[in-house]
Amino acid sequence: MSIGILDRVAQLGRFGLDQIQSIGRAGVFLILAIFSRAGFSNRFSLLTQQLYSVGVMSLIIVTVSGLFIGMVLALQGYNILIRYGSEDAVGQMVALSLLRELGPVVTALLFAGRAGSALTAEIGLMKTTEQLSSMEMIGVDPLKRVIAPRFWAGVISMPLLAAIFSLVGILGAVMVGVDWLGIYEGSFWSSMQASVSLVADIGNGLIKSLVFGFVVTWIAVFQGYDAIPTSEGVSRATTRTVVYSSLAILGLDFILTAVMFGEL
């Protein structure tokens, strides 16, 4: 029986070591990808291509989700605030919750599902079909040629997507709150403008989305690069990307919120 318990402990230890090892590998991988100087004349067009598949292709889902979330927030907020005669505060409520929380977080979750999983699958497939090896044999570092442009495209796209999400959300709230429920437009905007601050709300939301973009893309490209080169390995890596990114987003969101808005 005691052997059984020891085995369990050893298993746990091995699991812990594996995890730490893979975090270490991911760190080295990231540093190599970011700080390697790409010697290609066409690295700008490589980045453009990735901005297209990572950023532009995520636009539709981000815009549609933002619109609906803004509309729902306005509707829910109105129904509660009308009881206190403060329906003017709907604008303020929607803007603050979008800029501080929902914009960065929901965009990052959608981004992980849409772009992150696609990145992992694409890189994993390139590994499975030996494209990465053959690139190495031709004398090109896949970290520079394949990983770096995808990573930067993710980091650049995320804040832009989050800004679009928040703006579309607020416009959705205007549609529901002002045009449909009949909140007076002037006080809708003025209550918003009185409480939203450029640095504390928009700036911090932007920082959040940058951090999320960095982490999600990092997880996605590493999982693809580290995938076991079989179809099963790639599909597992894709699942891991979505799970790890979602957990990382929500955990980091709490930490960032505590640091940014903790004193208030």
């Binding site: 703006l167 905007w189 928009i202």
Partner: peptide, 15 residues
């Protein structure tokens, strides 16, 4: 579009 969204947020939403 992304930059524009940021500018609009800054001007219109935070006044």
């Amino acid at each position: 579009a992304g930059m524009l969204a940021l500018v609009v947020l800054a001007l219109k939403v935070s006044g």
